[in-house]
Simulated assay, not measured.
Amino acid sequence: MATFNNGINGGFNGKVGSAVGYQLNGKWVMRGLPKFSPKNKKGSTNQKACRSGFTKMQHFLSPVIAFIRVGFNLESKLRQMSAHNVAKSYNMLNAQDANGEIDCAKIHLTYGNLIGVENATIAIDDTGFHFSWANNAGNNWIRETDQVMVMAYTMEHQRCYYKLSGARRNEVKETLEIPLQEKGNEFHIWTSFIADDRAQISMSNYIGSFIF
C-alpha cells in the first residue's frame, strides 16, 4: 500500500502495482519492480556468484551503516544515490575477489580527497584502542581543525565501535573505548579525517586487525 504526500499531485511512498515510489535526495522518484524470468530466478553460475558477493557485502556493511552515511555522504550527493548504495557499489568493485570474499585492507568506509591519516599507531589496554598519528596539516591552519574518525569492527560478532567526530588533526591522539566483554576478540580498524565544516573528507585508511 502506498501513501500520498501533499495530495494526489504529490509524491508517494510505497508500492502501487509494479511501481515503487520513494524520496531520494529531496526528490520524489518512482521505479519499476524487477521482473525475473524462470531462468534468471534459478541463476547462472556467474549470477549466483554475483548474488553471493552482493549478500556478503550487504552483511558486512550493515553494522557500520551509521559510519558510512557520514563517510560516503559527499560522494552520494554527487551521484544522487544513497550513501549505503555508493559504499556498497564501490567496495564490491574494489574490495571483493571473484568469489565475493572481502579484503578488509581494500575496504573504504569514507570516500573523499582530503589528506588522510599518516603514520598511525595503536596501543591497546583494558580501556580500548589508543590512536596516534602525524600532524600532516603543514602550514594550513584549517587542516589542523580536521577531526579524526575511527572505526573498530569485529566481523566475527558483527559489532562495531566508532567515533564520527574525534580529536583534531593537530592533537595527534584519540582513544576509542571498548567494553571489557569484547576482551579477546579480533577487531579490524579504519581511520579517516573529516573537515570541521563537513565539506571535505578523506579516504579511510585500514590500519590492520588487532586482538583487544
Rank of each mutant, 00 (worst) to 15 (best):
S37Y: 08
K27P: 03
D97G: 06
L78G: 06
I107F: 10
S132E: 10
G100E: 07
R51D: 13
S62K: 13
M81N: 10
G43W: 01
S18I: 06
V150T: 07
F54Q: 06
T121Q: 14
G26V: 05
N139P: 08
D97H: 06
L33Y: 09
S52D: 11
K27C: 10
P34W: 04
K15T: 04
M81I: 09
R31G: 06
S52R: 05
N136C: 10
A49M: 13
I65T: 15
T45H: 12
G26P: 02
G128Y: 01
A105V: 05
H84T: 13
L93Q: 15
Q147C: 09
S132P: 05
A98Y: 08
Y22Q: 06
Y90L: 11
H108Q: 15
H108E: 14
D126A: 14
S62V: 07
V86D: 01
Y153S: 01
N140D: 14
G71Y: 00
N135A: 04
F54R: 03
F54H: 08
L24N: 08
K88G: 04
T110N: 05
E118M: 11
G43E: 03
E144I: 04
K41R: 10
V64W: 00
L24R: 07
E75H: 08
M149R: 01
S82P: 00
S37L: 07
A95K: 01
A120H: 06
A49P: 03
N135F: 02
W133L: 02
D146P: 01
V64M: 07
